[in-house]
């Protein structure tokens, strides 16, 4: 009996594979043959060219958008005989341009990241570290809560029926609107510093994690669950040996969404309580004083932070799935 069940278990994936569309199958095989890296290399050239095109568009846009402003400046300063070249150079080096040119943002990043001491309030490293702390703390709380809730929902029937629709419905609500209020409420309890912002980050990252993990823990197919039953596996065993490993791809996918959401939460929370610093506070300060270069620099730093965090989780995903024997 046991052998029969094991054979069935083995046949499961193969049976399914026979019904997979030929194209998907070919994709799987080519991935197994280690073409994944090759495909990524193939993307390098197109991505480079598209990025280069974007930079050109950016420069043209900066010229077009800044010209009226610069003309006014020249007129106010009484400069009349300027050539088109003078105008273009002035356009791309304004102090408060409508659209700063890329090299201005790079210069600002260079100044605020490398040349300013990281302890100074003018340093983007200082603000970035604050945002990073809030994001990581919030993400840790949020994903732990999300996973715990997913485990509950998968195991307790009553909760599945009553809780899951609310988790889904909550996705349709602009949760971020709550951010200013959560900061105020926590202030009443004398909770200040990074914790209120981490709570908002947690709040945002927690829903994608719950939804993804419920899907992941449910992903083993009935054949595999039946097999566990024929083994007389307890619930805990089924969970540890089948459900948890099967949810790994979903786990990493939801972690990626969760950490990106946590960063958004942290940045928005900083906008609503800007005196503690952080990238969101830099955004707000820049928008108060019309410092466009500062806004763009803060924005790019936040983007780099987000991309790095997501990339790190992607790396962990690749390592773990290789260890688990998923061909990638």
């Amino acid at each position: 009996m046991r052998h029969f069940a094991a054979a069935l278990y083995d046949a499961g994936p193969r049976l399914k594979a026979n019904f997979v569309r030929p194209r998907a199958l070919r994709a799987t095989f080519s991935r197994e043959a280690g073409e994944g890296i090759g495909a990524r290399m193939k993307n390098v050239l197109p991505v480079t060219i598209v990025v280069a095109a974007l930079l050109v568009v950016w420069y043209v846009g900066a010229l077009v958008m800044n010209t009226p402003l610069q003309r006014d400046f020249f007129a106010n300063a009484g400069v009349t005989n300027y050539s088109a070249e003078d105008l273009a150079i002035a356009d791309l080096n304004m102090e408060r341009p409508k659209l700063p040119a890329p090299h201005q943002i790079v210069a600002e990043l260079n100044k605020t990241v490398l040349e300013t001491a990281p302890t100074s309030k003018r340093s983007l490293v200082y603000h970035g570290l604050i945002t990073l702390q809030e994001t990581l703390l919030g993400f840790a709380i949020g994903s732990a809560l999300g996973i715990a809730l997913a485990i509950l929902i998968v195991n307790v029937k009553v909760l599945e029926k009553s809780l899951m629709p609310w988790v889904v419905a909550s996705q349709t609500i602009p949760i971020i609107a709550l951010a200013p209020m959560i900061v105020v409420i926590l202030n009443q309890f004398d909770i200040t510093g990074i914790l209120p912002k981490a709570v908002i980050a947690a709040y945002l990252s927690f829903f994608p994690v719950t939804v993804g993990m419920v899907k992941g823990l449910r992903s083993p197919d009935p054949l595999q669950l039946d097999l566990m039953r024929t083994y007389c596996a307890t619930r805990a065993q089924t969970f540890l040996k089948l459900r948890a490993p099967a949810s790994a791809p979903f786990f990493f996918a939801s972690m990626k969404i969760g950490v990106a959401a946590a960063l958004v939460g942290a940045v928005v929370a900083e906008v609503t309580k800007s005196e503690d610093g952080g990238l969101g506070a830099r955004l707000l300060a820049g928008s108060y004083y019309g410092q466009t270069v500062q806004i763009w620099a803060a924005l790019l730093t936040a983007a780099a932070l987000s991309a790095t965090l997501v990339g790190l989780i992607g790396l962990a995903d690749r390592i773990v799935s290789r260890r688990m024997g998923f061909a990638r």
């Binding site: 990626k256 940045v267 997501v310």
Partner: peptide, 14 residues
């Protein structure tokens, strides 16, 4: 994956 809400101040300016 980026915090796009950050473009809000720029758009308000434009």
């Amino acid at each position: 994956a980026l915090p796009i809400v950050g473009v809000a101040p720029i758009m308000v300016m434009w």
